[in-house]
C-alpha cells in the first residue's frame, strides 16, 4: 500500500550521466518547500557507462526506511538505451509517469517498450545541446518532472540548481542551464 503522503521516484541512468545529481537537485528543491526528503544511489560496479539507479522520496512526514523504492510514483530514464536491457515499468500499474530522455515520439517508444502506460518523452539531450551547448540531460529532465508530477515547484528546482552550480560553472552557464530546465517544463 502506498503512503499517500510520500512521492517516490526511480531514476535510471548510466554511471557518469549524473543520475545522482538529478536526485540531489530534486531533493534540495523539495527541502526549499519544507519537505522531508531522501535520495540515494544504487551503484553496480561504479563504472562509467554501467546502468545505475537513484531513488528519491519526497514526503510530508519524516522518512525512516532505507529500503529501495519498490513502487514508484514516477520513473525518470536519462538514457533511452537502458530500455533495451532494463524493465523500467516494474510495479507501474496505473497512470504513473515514465519520463524518458529521447528525441523519439511517445508512440515510437511505446511500441519499442511494448508498454501502453503513461510515457512522457522529452528531448532533454537536444534541449541541453541547443541551449547550453553541452549534453546535460540529467538536470534538464527535472523541468519535465516538475511539470508532470506537480510535486516540486519549477522555481525551486532552478534555484536549487543555481545554489549548487553557480559558484562552480559561473552565472552565464548557470542561466543557460536554467533556461533549458524551464524549456523542458514548458514544452509538452
Amino acid at each position: 500500500m502506498q503512503n499517500k503522503n510520500r512521492y517516490e521516484i526511480i531514476i535510471h541512468g548510466r554511471g557518469g550521466q549524473g543520475a545522482k545529481t538529478t536526485a540531489e537537485i530534486l531533493v534540495q528543491a523539495a527541502v526549499r518547500e519544507k519537505k522531508f526528503v531522501q535520495a540515494f544511489p544504487s551503484f553496480g560496479p561504479e563504472r562509467t557507462g554501467a546502468p545505475m539507479l537513484a531513488y528519491v522520496r519526497i514526503s510530508n512526514e519524516p522518512i525512516r526506511t532505507h529500503e529501495p523504492v519498490v513502487d514508484p510514483d514516477c520513473v525518470l530514464v536519462l538514457d533511452e538505451t537502458i530500455l533495451d536491457t532494463i524493465d523500467v515499468t516494474q510495479n507501474i500499474t496505473g497512470t504513473e509517469a515514465i519520463i524518458i530522455n529521447t528525441a523519439k515520439t511517445k508512440k515510437e517508444i511505446s511500441e519499442r517498450m511494448k508498454f501502453n502506460g503513461n510515457i512522457v518523452t522529452v528531448d532533454a539531450k537536444g534541449m541541453s545541446l541547443d541551449i547550453i551547448g553541452e549534453n546535460r540531460p540529467n538536470t534538464v529532465i527535472l523541468g519535465k518532472l516538475a511539470f508532470v508530477s506537480e510535486k516540486v515547484k519549477i522555481e525551486n528546482i532552478t534555484e536549487a540548481f543555481r545554489s549548487k552550480y553557480e559558484k562552480k560553472i559561473g552565472k552565464e552557464k548557470t542561466d543557460k542551464n536554467i533556461k533549458a530546465i524551464e524549456k523542458a517544463y514548458n514544452i509538452y
Binding site: V27, Q28, V37, Q38, P41, P62, I63, H66
Partner: peptide, 12 residues
C-alpha cells in the same frame, strides 16, 4: 554509519 545507505544518502 552504513556505507552508501547512509554515507551517500541525502536526508534532512
Amino acid at each position: 554509519m552504513d556505507g552508501f545507505f547512509t554515507s551517500h544518502s541525502v536526508e534532512n
